[in-house]
Structures are given as structure tokens and as C-alpha cells.
Nucleic acid binder design. Sequence first.
DNA 1: CATTACCTGCAA
DNA 2: TTGCAGGTAATG
Length: 284
Amino acid sequence: MPELPEVETVRRIIAPHVAGRRITEIDLDPDFPEVLDGPDGIDPAAGILDRTIISADRRGKYLIFPLDDGMSLVIHLRMTGRLLLTAHDAPPVRFQHAALALDNGMDMRFGDQRKFGRIRLTLPEDVEELSARLGPEPLDASFTGDQLHAALRRRSGKIKSVLLDQHLIAGLGNIYVDEALFRTRIHPLTPANKLDLEDTSRLVRAIRHILRAAIANQGTTFSTFENPYGESGSNAAFLKVYGKGRAGLPCPRCGTPLMHLVVGGRGTTYCPHCQPSPHVSGDE
DNA sequence: CATTACCTGCAA
DNA sequence: TTGCAGGTAATG
């Protein structure tokens, strides 16, 4: 489940290998050519062939590769997508759906067990629009307690669901939201607009801390995540609550058995003691 | 606001 | 054999 730290890990590893490189060959899985798509009326394979990749950027969970003609390749890994660097003559990677050969003898391979991920040739204005409809980058200076507090005031939904909304904050997924709420001792069902500025500022600091640590650990490998060299991230060992399998295990802070519930259709693990229900405490 | 579709490996 | 895992878009 690649979230911001996993996507950033991929970006950092892949950037020096692809920046300035020309795409010399494209090989698509004949059973799943839709993995590469593009704007109406444009053949995406023809559109990227012989283009040079300028850089490897990230916005939220999207990887963005600007090309030398102004278009961009926008890649989203969704749940099980992987981007791997291989030699050009290496055998296909597991669940490979696309291979882009580069002029340095390497390939960028895209594999995805569940076929949710996409490589999309994207018009400049559509990249702009995509970025504009995403919330701030949580590791940027623009993401502050004041900013998030103002955004949360307009939302009466559960804080867990609101934090997963990419329009509000770009890059959080189920793992890091559960971890951030545990760290700040906020119950996942707390209405977002009930968090005061102090709670929200603590949440901002927790999100930053957790994301930075996860990036330093090259991401969380819970089941399928691998970096472009095929290596697992080491952050899973540092998670405190995430995962249904932790339900019933003692809270790492107080020892109370962790609870699991479904919030907005997402599995959610939390400590009922450290993250008290908003109904029982804290009402005016 | 909540639910479902998209997929498929794997646990129950 | 069933259903869960979850990022996002689409739908009710």
C-alpha cells in the first residue's frame, strides 16, 4: 500500500537513473495494455517513444515524470503497483505490465498484481489540475496547524476519513493515519471540526514526524511494497498500531488491548485507552 | 455522507 | 469457498 513515504522512496531511488534519459522502447503486457493510457485521441505509446524524461517528481502519492515536449508521465501505484529498475535484458518482473527502455541500458518496469495502478501520459494543464485539486504536501512549510485547523473546521466527518481525503492533505493512507492518530491520542471517530488548534498542531507535528521517519526507513513493507531495487522497507517494525492483526494485542504505550473497527470502509486499529472515545470525554 | 467497483492473492 | 485488504473514482 504505497503512501507518501513509499512513493517518495521510489522517487528518490529512480530519479538519478531516469532523469535526462530518453525512452527508446516500450513493451506492454498484451493482456493489459490499458496500464498505459493517455488523453483522448493520442496513442500513449507513440506519445512517449523517443521522449526524454526531465526529472522524477512527486505530488502526494503520484509520481510525475515531466517529458521534454511538455507532457508528463503520471504514475499511480494504487495498492500493489511496483516500479522497478532492471537491466534491459532482464526477465519480466512479477506481474509486469509495462517496460520502458531507457538510453542508458536500463528499463523502468511497472508491475501490479491487482491492475489498479496506471501510467498515464498527461497534458500539462491536466497535471496542473491534478496538483491543484490535491491538498498541501504534509512535509512542506505550507502545511501548518493553522492551515489544517482551518480546513478541518468545515468538515464534520470522522477525523480518520477526513485525513484520508487527498483533497485535504496529499499523501496519507491507512497506515500513517492510524499511526498519527495513535501518536496524538485522537480517537479515529472524533468529528474533524471538534479538534481545537492545539490538537491540530500536534497532529501536524505527528504526521510530519511519522512520514519523515518512514522515508528514512525506506517505507513500510506490510505485504507487497518494494523499492525500485526490489528491496523491502524497514518501517513496518516501527509501526505502533496499524494492522488488523494487532487487534487484541497490548497497546505499546499502556498495555490495553488494541481495538479494530471499520471507519469509512477502512480497517482501523487504535487504543481505546490512549485514544478515548469523543463521546465519553471532552464534551464541552 | 456512505457504498461500490475495480482486481487478485491469501487468510479464515 | 468466501471475503478481506485498500487508493481512488464513481455512484446512491
